[in-house]
């Protein structure tokens, strides 16, 4: 059986290089037959695509998509640099 570290690295590489996602900085952890995705993206569709690509690269693992969608809120307090 392939070491889980290599599988995780392959999934992470796919998330960065697959034309549907191109998402860097997603953390991939594997425990037994469970795969966990964590990180932040700008939209719900991107989160779903990342889950899909991870599933395609490691179809034998159960994917837990724990990625958060960051909603940009209105600007807050100004910072004064003096």
């Amino acid at each position: 059986m392939e070491a889980p570290q290599y599988v995780a690295a392959r999934v992470q590489q796919a998330l960065a290089e697959d034309g549907r996602t191109h998402e860097l900085g997603i953390r991939v952890d594997i425990r037994g037959d469970q795969l966990f995705l964590r990180g932040q993206v700008s939209g719900a569709e991107q989160r779903e695509r990342l889950g899909q690509v991870a599933h395609e690269v490691a179809p034998e693992l159960h994917v837990h998509n724990e990625i958060n969608v960051v909603e940009a809120t209105a600007p807050g307090e100004d910072e004064h640099l003096d």
């Binding site: 700008s42 960051v70 809120t73 807050g76 004064h80 640099l81 003096d82």
Partner: peptide, 16 residues
């Protein structure tokens, strides 16, 4: 943007 969590931040350079 993921660091700010906001659409943008405003920085004021003081001209005093």
């Amino acid at each position: 943007l993921p660091v700010l969590g906001r659409a943008y931040c405003v920085y004021c350079l003081n001209c005093a």
